[in-house]
Design a protein around this nucleic acid. Structure first.
Length: 421
RNA sequence: GUGGAUGUGGUGAAGUGGCUAACACACCGGAUUGUGGCUCCGGCAUUCGUGGGUUCGAUCCCCAUCAUCCACCCCA
């Protein structure tokens, strides 16, 4: 009990953590090139922030939130996604006073009380991007391009950008009514959850995977058909912009996002993987009106998030190796207590020069230390025994060739530094 | 929340109602005195997720529980 982690959480051990660092570094690099700046936010927010934004009828709010009451009886929730917190911070810190648009990114853990399975965890990590204050379709295209660029640099293949427009405050209400009217005719053919969705959120029926519902949904009026002129024009322009930079996409009229705040552009990046049913590796869309819901000015917004566990999973499936750390340049093998101290001093001197240095801490035999140096794949091993100490020298062995020579102790750090240049 | 599968040392795994629970890898130590990668030798599970039960006796049978994995659902 004391040695089991909570269900749905992960320990990322050495060997794995380097991969995370690599991916995070890549995300930061691409963001820097696209002009997105990092925002670091709390891990929990007021529960209302999610009720109001993600939507009370969404699965996330209805059954997946890690909510608790703090000692002051305030309702708190471990963030299930990044957009609500980013919007909150944008307004609270009055970033709207800066020249717009504001282009932000975040990276970190999210929490959802799901039943874990491949590519789905209760604590999982997302890299996400949010842009406020720009309504032009160019920014929609840029955001999609940014996600695709990250995947491209990783060498991923077989990904598809699925695109849809899901309506806005103008066209959604009438479309919802159309949908209700349409689906009511086939109510008996819908699954139980979809019957439930019919009145509350008929849009979601379009996304249902049940065969019966899928068949019915085929004939339903699509969001594209129902789109108002502004939405249509926006969607058209987005496609033109994506075409212009060669980002390929597929229009999926059934694509509906599970979070209620999306308007107009909705997209998802899926990967045809064999290993996992969780094939959506990134998802996002536009959310004009969300800032107003938080009580701010009615600035437009758009964003997406990448599920990093899924990204790692996909990389593994596609056999893409990420760097897992570097080998030490120097391994110091002391023999005896006097040498141990000398080795300690030498290690410090080398490290101060920026040289990755390993040493023995256990007083192992020379043989065992050589083995360790070999396992570390150290470039050089410094052997420091009593006879060397007496002469004020150390033996430096180049591991690959097996050649070795003596160096004066007081010149050792400089000597190694020179050789490693 | 629903359904399915699994749970033997650090890892991958064999195994059977009954004497000291295979094997491989990893790890540790050794093969003449202070030197790696190959080879050889030795060590490494009072114990088979946990708690009950059946039995003369259970890792192998039953029940419960916990955990993991997979699918549905949902989503990243």
């Amino acid at each position: 009990m004391l040695t089991t982690r909570p269900t749905g959480t992960n320990d990322f051990l050495p060997g794995e953590s380097e991969k995370w660092q690599y991916i995070e570094q890549l995300c930061r690099q691409v963001c820097a090139e696209y002009g997105y700046q990092e925002i670091r936010l709390p891990i929990f927010e007021h529960t209302e922030a999610y009720l109001r934004s993600v939507g009370e009828t969404s699965d996330i709010v209805e059954k997946e939130m890690y909510s608790f009451e703090d000692k002051g009886f305030r309702h708190m929730t471990l963030r299930p996604e990044g957009t609500a917190g980013t919007v909150r911070a944008f307004l609270e810190n009055k970033l709207y006073a800066n020249p717009q648009p504001t282009k932000l990114y975040y990276i970190g853990p999210m929490f959802r009380y799901d039943k874990p399975q491949a590519g789905r965890y209760r604590q999982f990590n997302q890299f996400g991007v949010e842009v406020f204050g720009a309504d032009h379709a160019a920014i929609d295209a840029e955001v999609i391009a940014l996600a695709v660029e990250i995947f491209r640099r990783l060498g991923l293949t077989g990904l598809t950008v699925k695109l849809n427009t899901v309506g806005c405050a103008q066209c959604r209400p009438s479309h919802m009514e159309e949908l209700k009217t349409y689906f009511r005719q086939y109510e008996d053919k819908l699954c139980t959850t979809c019957r439930d969705r019919l009145e509350r959120n008929p849009l979601r029926i379009l996304d249902c995977k049940e065969e019966g519902c899928k068949a019915v949904a085929k004939g339903a009026p699509t969001t594209i058909e129902a789109a108002c002129d502004v939405c249509s024009a926006h969607f058209q322009k987005l496609q033109e912009y994506l075409d212009a930079i060669g980002v390929r996409y597929e229009i999926d009229t059934n694509l509906v996002r599970g979070l209620d705040y999306y308007t107009r552009t909705a997209f998802e990046i899926v990967i045809d993987s064999v290993g996992s049913a969780q094939n959506a590796i990134a998802g996002g869309g536009r959310y004009n009106g969300l800032l107003a819901q938080f009580g701010g000015d009615d600035l437009p917004g758009i964003g997406f998030a990448i599920g990093l566990e899924r990204l790692l999973l996909t990389l593994k499936e596609q056999g893409i190796e990420l760097p897992v750390g570097t080998a030490p340049a120097v391994y110091i093998a002391p023999l005896g207590e006097a040498a141990q101290k000398e080795a300690f001093v030498l290690a410090q001197a080398l490290r101060e020069k920026g040289i990755y240095t390993e040493k023995d801490y256990l007083g192992k035999s020379l043989k065992a230390q050589m083995k360790a140096a070999d396992r570390f794949q150290a470039k050089y091993t410094v052997i420091l025994g009593d006879s060397e100490l007496e002469k004020g020298v150390a033996i430096v062995r180049e591991m690959a060739s097996g050649g070795q020579y003596e160096v004066q102790l007081n010149q050792l750090a400089e000597d190694l530094e020179g050789r490693l240049k």
